[in-house]
């Protein structure tokens, strides 16, 4: 963006630094609060939270029922909640039904369980195409689904946030909850991948 109509665009890094200076020198934004927010999403809140939810649901049938019945409350049982997680609905992927999540209008995403969205989720091609040709898009992203699997795309157009409970892979029957956690990927919890057995 240029203010004087010239062709030059200042870099976003420089403009961000300018904005930070303008707000912090007037005491309007606390730089320590900025650091805390950044640390929160760089290190504390990410897809590991969602993986713990999924592994619990795979190993505890009563928890799985609570999770599918009231996602927000069941997720809070494990201590996860906060911004962009006021109302989390969990949907289950099975051998016959495949859910995949998008936000076509911006990039809404269930921050408390998955952290901030990855670049592919924010990409215009994903936002535009997953509601029009999901089977093609999933194939492009590396997920080939059998022709008889029903695809349901979840467009996050309100404050409802969607989390996919992936199908537990065959061959993991003997694994404990703790052993299952590292198998569960962010991409499987958005619905663009499946969880693979180790």
């Amino acid at each position: 963006m240029t203010s004087d109509g010239s062709a030059e665009r200042l870099s976003p890094a420089l403009r961000t630094e300018a904005l930070e200076q303008l707000l912090t020198e007037r005491g309007l934004v606390d730089p320590d609060a900025m650091d805390r927010l950044i640390t929160r999403y760089e290190t504390n809140v990410g897809p590991l939270n969602g993986a713990k939810v999924v592994a619990r649901a795979w190993t505890d049938p009563a928890y799985r029922r609570r999770l599918l019945d009231d996602g927000t409350a069941a997720i809070a049982e494990l201590g996860f909640g906060g911004p962009q997680g006021e109302c989390i609905v969990v949907v289950e992927n099975t051998a016959t039904t495949h859910n995949v999540v998008v936000c076509t209008l911006c990039s809404c995403y269930p921050w408390p369980v998955l952290g901030l969205p990855p670049s592919w989720y924010k990409d215009p091609a994903y936002r535009a195409r997953i509601v029009r040709e999901p089977r093609t898009v999933l194939s492009e992203m590396g997920l080939e689904l059998p022709g008889d699997v029903q695809i349901i795309v979840r467009d996050s157009t309100s404050e409802v946030r969607w989390l996919v409970l992936p199908e537990r892979p065959a061959g993991t029957e003997g694994l404990t909850e703790e052993q299952l956690v590292p198998l569960v990927t962010r991409d499987a919890m958005v619905g663009v991948a499946k969880v693979e057995a180790p």
């Binding site: 076509t104 209008l105 911006c106 990855p118 670049s119 592919w120 990409d123 215009p124 091609a125 994903y126 936002r127 535009a128 195409r129 509601v131 029009r132 898009v137 492009e140 992203m141 590396g142 467009d155 962010r186 991409d187 663009v192 991948a193």
Partner: peptide, 16 residues
């Protein structure tokens, strides 16, 4: 911003 179903964006970027 209202991108759902719009054309012309090319291929998706596979997850890294």
């Amino acid at each position: 911003a209202d991108m759902g179903g719009t054309r012309g964006w090319g291929l998706t970027h596979p997850p890294r």
